[in-house]
């Protein structure tokens, strides 16, 4: 069983601040999503609403067709891991794990044990005594071992060092293959994890900028390089995301995908067409100088 997540005209305000601004989004169940956005874009607000940590100001969010807020039977299907870990600070790691085992209906003791070993989490220490990296590793362990049909990791792995992060990506993929479920990974370290995403969701200023398959997104960006005037001529009328000029040479990043004919034209005009990494597309699409989505 997999669970979808749907946001319908979703609004969340914190006092005078609008964190989510009439967001509409449908995430099919059973996929790995990259939830991308700059700080303050609404990623954490969205995750908190999906996991019933908060109630929407207006609009609706549903998980598997049910609004999760104060709906125990659906909340037990959802596991949100935030950077702090949401655990009792003064507890020992071992009792944090016991608590999760008692409250998570799909908890895998075996999986938790493997991950504790792989990340070398000291189970006898208290949470307050753990380094930032170890706290992140504990969060990752709680999320993966929960085997919750909807598992959300909100920037939880950012405190880990590079080898641990890669171990996390590997464990996430293995777990997902063995136990397919809906996984949402919110991050701004896009490059190293983007190959895991089936779909990418980009939020900016509380709204949806883009939601599509990661492969399609990669195909849509193109960097056109050549003599400035030729580049300008070629890209006029296209959706330009960024422009860099160095002397007589310009590079213009366009979004929308070039067809074979356009690529031929470019090549015969002496222009170079290069691909654009996901991270660059993300930066361009969420540039504050850009007009509102």
């Amino acid at each position: 069983m997999t669970l979808s997540i749907t946001a319908d005209d979703l609004v969340l305000d914190y006092g005078d601040t609008r964190a989510l601004d009439h967001l509409n989004l449908h995430l099919e169940g059973g996929r790995i999503y990259g939830l991308l956005g700059r700080n303050g874009s609404g990623k954490t607000s969205f995750a908190s609403l999906a996991a019933a940590f908060r109630r929407p100001t207006s609009g609706e969010i549903t998980v598997g067709g049910t609004a999760p807020f104060e709906a125990a039977e659906i909340v037990s299907q959802i596991c949100l891991i935030r950077e702090g870990g949401d655990v009792f600070e003064s507890d020992r790691v071992s009792s944090v794990l016991r608590f999760a085992a008692a409250h998570r209906p799909y908890w895998s003791e075996e999986r938790a044990g493997q991950l504790v070993e792989r990340f070398r989490i000291p189970t006898r220490k208290r949470v307050t005594q753990l380094s930032r990296g170890m706290r992140s590793a504990l969060g990752v362990t709680l999320g993966l071992a929960s085997r919750a049909p909807v598992t959300l990791f909100d920037e939880v792995h950012l405190g880990m060092d590079a080898p641990s992060r890669y171990a996390f990506y590997e464990e996430l993929l293995n777990d997902y293959l063995a136990h397919p479920r809906t996984v949402i990974l919110s991050t701004h370290l896009i490059e190293e994890v983007s190959s895991l995403f089936e779909e990418v969701v980009i939020l900016d200023r509380g709204g949806l900028v883009l939601h599509e398959s990661a492969d399609d997104m990669r195909e849509r960006g193109a960097a056109v390089t050549g003599p400035s005037r030729d580049v300008e001529d070629f890209t006029s009328g296209m959706r330009v995301l960024g422009r860099q000029t160095l002397g007589a040479t310009s590079q213009v990043t366009v979004f929308g995908g070039l067809d074979a004919e356009q690529r031929r034209q470019a090549t015969s005009a002496g222009l170079e067409i290069g691909p654009v990494p996901l991270q660059d597309l993300f930066i361009h699409l969420t540039d504050p100088e850009r007009e509102t989505p």
Binding site: Y169, L173, Y176, L177, S195, L196, E198, S213, A214, D215
Partner: peptide, 16 residues
């Protein structure tokens, strides 16, 4: 799935 694990990529991508 073997491709997904070996190259650390989403299985949907490998399938495609």
């Amino acid at each position: 799935n073997q491709f997904a694990v070996a190259y650390r990529i989403n299985p949907a991508t490998a399938a495609k």
